[in-house]
Design a protein around this nucleic acid. Structure first.
Lengths: 223, 223
DNA sequence: CTTTCTCGAACGAACGTTCGAACGGCCGCC
DNA sequence: GGCGGCCGTTCGAACGTTCGTTCGAGAAAG
């Protein structure tokens, strides 16, 4: 019954988490709607009826995946944002947090991005609420950057352009490919930051909070 | 029978186009898979069986929408790219073409972006082929820009970041809202171009094709 | 023995698709 | 001019399948 604890002890919780992880993988592979409960049953080894001991409905399965995933992104972000007050540095943290989490949880994040409108009613409201909170946070940080460094790009366009860049990666990026997560973060940060601020030579600065400027090949990785 | 003419004369072609437009709208609203042929029947006023006089299957309906839409984007782009040989100007044309077409055909373009993997087999290949062609074209232009102006952003990241920015707009942009298409294009162009090229003052230039930016002094250093 | 967990079997609903009959305008033939 | 036949078009009704979900019996665990 201790559902929101980070560590699970009971078999129930472990099995539920396993079902959610598996379901997320299949939802990511073939989409939420084309996936049947029988698909999930087959992939998990749990009988069709047995699934309903762990969730009330297929909708709730999607909700649990999205809500839990979004919650972790937000939690990690708030935590890291406490580290610094510098606007540009905070923006870097946003990008680093989002992309490294995305790369480390590709299936869940694809489901979160691609199936945003597949829920309805109260479940949709809950996830939408978290999304709005996230969007507002990022927008506020962008405003701070603009206040500190100037910039002529519309705030709304910039915010959604950033989300577009970041959320599109499930369409092409392979975390196991030649491009490391660090390089990805580095490039996106440079691309966006330099385009967003007024005009600034130091926009080429290194991405990480505490890395020196040496040309380091991507070693580091979040999470 | 004259299927690939731009102008339709027969009743058949007009009605097929009407069905495709309506289907695209509903696919965009509630997604391809959750939409039933009965939904399309209801929205068009054509009986359920009647729809199958105009298409072989629901899949083909989606294919016709995507293929036709993509074809028009590509056609318009190739046409416009003939206007100039300047790399930066060509990049501007790409962005202008993509976004203005997107804004003018929101439903079709959302279906094209969001339902990219909803087709299989040969139909999927056909659309995928056009997408690859489009991607390669844009990537080549970006490489030209980089060759002319410099820039330190990875070409693959830049290409997909640009597509991410542009294709994400169906998640937030309302063509009838306060932000005009021109402003949108203007902002995205500025944001991306300034972030992508090494460092360049004229990145604030006007969006339209023919601007008189002979050569502005390159004030900001690159790298 | 009680509680927690599991599943085969079945339910009604909705799905994509098909079939054969009917419609309406247009042609040539009486 | 009237008429039978043809062809492009339309649709009500139904087919077989798959869907999400439920139920009650039984196994496992404590």
């Amino acid at each position: 019954m201790a559902a929101n604890l980070t560590e699970d002890f009971t078999r129930y919780d472990q099995k539920l988490e396993f079902i959610l992880r598996t379901a997320a993988r299949i939802f990511a592979e073939k989409g939420y709607h084309p996936t049947s409960m029988r698909d999930i049953s087959r992939a998990t080894g749990v009988s069709l009826a047995g699934l309903y001991y762990y969730c009330k409905s297929k909708d709730e399965l999607l909700f649990l995946i999205q809500d839990n995933c979004f919650g972790r992104v937000l939690e990690r972000l708030e935590e890291r944002l406490g580290e610094t007050a510098d606007a540009v540095e905070r923006l870097r943290l946003v990008i680093e947090n989002h992309l490294s989490f995305f790369a480390a949880n590709m299936a869940e994040m694809k489901v979160l991005s691609h199936e945003a409108d597949s829920l309805a009613g109260e479940m949709h409201e809950r996830v939408s609420g978290k999304k709005q909170q996230y969007t507002r946070t990022v927008r506020r940080i962008l405003a701070e950057v603009q206040a500190a460094r100037g910039g002529s790009v519309d705030l709304t366009v910039a915010t959604y352009a950033l989300f577009g860049m970041m959320n599109w990666i499930y369409n092409w990026y392979d975390p196991r490919g030649p491009l490391s997560v660090g390089d990805l973060v580095d490039n996106v940060t440079r691309l966006f930051l330099r385009g967003f601020v007024a005009g600034d030579a130091d926009a080429e600065a290194r991405p990480s909070a505490r890395t020196l400027d040496a040309e380091r090949p991507s070693v580091w990785r979040g999470n």
